[in-house]
Design a protein around this nucleic acid. Structure first.
Lengths: 192, 192
DNA sequence: GTCTATAAACTGATAGAC
DNA sequence: GTCTATCAGTTTATAGAC
């Protein structure tokens, strides 16, 4: 029973892993079940057993991502604001270093108009969570005096999210973009 | 002769107009020749006469956009840095107000990994031009003393471009995003 | 010069085999 | 429970009619 569950979960997980790589490199509209099934060594219709419709796969991908992101946040709840910011940067670099992936929120908001309703709802929730996190960093940084910046923490957090989301995309045309942006964000937070 | 040229140009122009709307709302991979031909009232294959391959249409779209953007820049060469920044914001709002379109550089860099080489080359050139413009605004603003900000003009210009590109995308999930970002950018430039 | 008929390949998806 | 054979619709694209 455990074995059955594991094997089922395992195939399902492999599908999600392959789909995630495709989503973050090519986008939702530019990958198909064939891409996944070829990589997995099965027929494309086999994927439909695990995820009947492409929506289902899309929703599952974002939900899994949200859970992972939540763990990522929880794991650094005790760190200083500046250290949390560094984790933010590290996360951003990790995307880029993995086949020039971009942030999921960038993919989902760019393709937003073509997404089905259930995927839009998940995308909205994910964007909110990322934004809240960025805002909390700016907020706590100002509160403990380690960060000094113009405007409200809400606006500064949003700006950091938007800049890094756009920056990951722009980095595909110029690999120095991210380093420049990271330095600039720190400057604007009075951290340099 | 003039009439022939005009009618040909006219159909070609209508195709480009429809394609541009589709590109900026749905993205390159999510629109087809059928979308265009249906709107135009012809068979999808008719589009192939004007643009044999989809690459050709994609390249023509970006090239036209680059020319238009160049005229946009030239038209305000004499304005103050702060006024040029306002035009930047106005341009950004204009995208969003037109069916929640996003910036072309955001589309092209997000779908970058799926684009053919000729479209990538055009995308690179366009991104460079947008970035140069943003950097020049920060540069001249610092020079004439109207803007005060941390970091280099190069980094600040890049940050503004990245933030507005990401912001247009995020605005689809929350319509207040752009207003917040504009205020914050002005704060960071010492303009408020 | 402009467009239509048509096709080859790929898409997401269902019914049913094992 | 898991996957294969198969399909109907869409995609880009070509050959050729007017």
């Amino acid at each position: 029973m455990k074995a059955e569950t594991d094997s089922r979960t395992d195939t399902r997980k492999r599908i999600l892993d392959i789909a995630e790589e495709l989503l973050l490199t090519r986008g939702y509209n530019a990958f198909s079940y064939q891409h996944i099934s070829t990589e997995l060594g099965v027929r494309n219709a086999a994927i439909h057993y695990h995820f009947p419709k492409k929506n289902d796969l899309g929703v599952a991908l974002i939900q899994r991502y949200r859970r992972r992101f939540q763990r990522f946040i929880d794991a650094q709840a005790e760190l200083s604001p500046a250290e949390q910011l560094e984790r933010y940067f590290t996360l951003t670099d990790a995307y880029f270093d993995r086949d020039q992936q971009i942030c999921p929120s960038g993919i989902l908001t760019t393709e937003y108009q073509t997404l089905p309703d259930d995927m839009r709802a998940e995308a909205n929730a994910f964007v909110d969570e990322m934004r809240d996190w960025a805002v909390r960093i700016a907020e706590s940084g100002r509160t403990d005096g380690s960060m000094r910046f113009a405007g409200t923490p809400e606006a500064m957090g949003l700006l950091m999210l938007a800049a890094l989301q756009g920056g990951l995309q722009l980095a595909r045309t110029d690999t120095t973009v991210l380093a420049t942006l990271k330095t600039q964000v720190k400057s604007l937070l009075g951290l340099v």
